[in-house]
Simulated assay, not measured.
Amino acid sequence: MVLSRGWSVFLMLVGVWTWVIWPRFAVAIWNDPRAWSAGVVGEGAPTSFLWVHALLIAASLALGTTVGVLGIKGWRASRAAR
């Protein structure tokens, strides 16, 4: 199956969007007092709030990377098919 160039661009943009948004969200979660048992950023043990969000962020970055790579491969395949 060969993706159209339009879908390939869309997938690449989704991959880029993922890498723009999720790291910023990770910083916000890290700086949230709910992420730390002492209620102060960086002090005390990480809470389940931090771990759950870290897992969600990691999964989203992995999926975004996969989608972006598929977009790149689709773009290359559409160029080779011409």
Rank of each mutant, 00 (worst) to 15 (best):
I72P: 09
I29K: 02
G39S: 05
G39M: 02
W51R: 12
W75N: 13
L56N: 09
L63V: 14
W75F: 15
R34V: 06
S60V: 00
I57V: 11
A62S: 14
W51I: 10
L55F: 02
L55A: 14
T65N: 12
A77N: 14
T66Q: 11
I29Y: 01
T66E: 11
G39H: 00
P46S: 07
A38R: 04
R34A: 14
R34I: 07
I29W: 01
G64F: 00
G74P: 14
E43Y: 05
T66G: 14
W22I: 10
H53C: 07
V40D: 04
G42N: 09
I29N: 04
I72H: 13
V40N: 04
L70S: 14
G64L: 06
I57L: 07
W36P: 06
R34F: 05
G64M: 01
G64E: 05
A35Q: 01
A26C: 00
L70D: 14
V69T: 13
D32A: 09
A28Q: 11
A45H: 11
P46R: 09
S37L: 02
T65K: 05
S37E: 08
L55E: 00
H53Y: 04
G44F: 03
A26Q: 09
W51Y: 11
L70F: 15
W51A: 11
F25S: 03
T65I: 07
K73V: 13
R24G: 11
R34D: 08
V52N: 11
L55T: 10
H53A: 09
D32K: 04
P33C: 06
W30L: 06
L61H: 01
G68W: 11
A26T: 04
A28N: 08
R24M: 09
K73D: 14
V69S: 13
R34L: 10
P33M: 02
V27Y: 02
W30E: 08
V41R: 11
V67K: 12
I72Q: 14
